[in-house]
């Protein structure tokens, strides 16, 4: 960034593009994409502020964007059918979610709510799809990242279950899809 345009401090005049670029290059979902494509995605991304208590997405609601938490805290919860919501995890800076919704129409299985004021990067499905139409070569990279994540996640679940696999009985395994 040239000194004549560099903004001192975090304000509304700051250059969001370079921040977005640095973020997306670090998110595994975009791993493997060429710099040219990530630049376009960073350019198409926006910023969104949230206040403590705001719901970023609700269980069973359609997800239509990917979000990366720049600052602030979120809690992830899930309510079983007819039951009370259970908070599964609290996440903060660096957490990325909604990547799969960039690929197709999916409903969230979780509710994500802000526990403190914060800010996140937002990339909408519509903009991602427009970029994907123009750079179709990025989709196999995304697919590889998703498949890699599935395997790592399921291996983690199996490891966490150890010898106690009874909860998984009757399921054939996500990675066998």
């Amino acid at each position: 960034m040239n000194s004549s345009t560099e903004h001192q401090g975090d304000s509304e005049g700051a250059c969001g593009f370079t921040t977005h670029l640095d973020i997306l290059r670090d998110v595994p979902f975009f791993t493997g994409m060429s710099l040219d494509v990530i630049k376009v995605l960073a350019y198409l991304s926006g910023n969104e502020s949230f206040r403590a208590g705001d719901q970023l997405c609700g269980q069973d609601e359609m997800l239509d964007c990917g979000r990366y938490v720049i600052c602030g805290g979120l809690e992830i919860s899930h309510a079983p059918e007819g039951g009370e919501p259970v908070v599964l995890k609290t996440v903060g800076r660096g957490f990325f979610f909604g990547g799969l919704s960039l690929l197709t129409h999916v409903k969230s299985l979780y509710t994500i709510r802000a526990v403190s004021d914060g800010d996140c990067l937002v990339l909408s499905r519509e903009k991602f799809q427009k970029a994907a139409e123009r750079f179709p070569e990025m989709l196999p990279k995304v697919l590889a990242a998703v498949v890699g994540h599935m395997f790592t996640w399921e291996a983690g679940v199996l490891e966490a279950c150890g010898n106690n696999l009874s909860a998984l009985k009757g399921m054939s395994g996500l990675t066998l899809f």
Binding site: M1, S3, S4, T5, E6, H7, Q8, E12, G13, A14, C15, G16, F17, H20, Y43, N47
Partner: peptide
């Protein structure tokens, strides 16, 4: 428009 065109920042001097 710095709030919309995030591709470059606006320097304090310019502002």
């Amino acid at each position: 428009t710095p709030g919309r065109h995030k591709i470059v920042g606006l320097s304090r001097i310019t502002e």
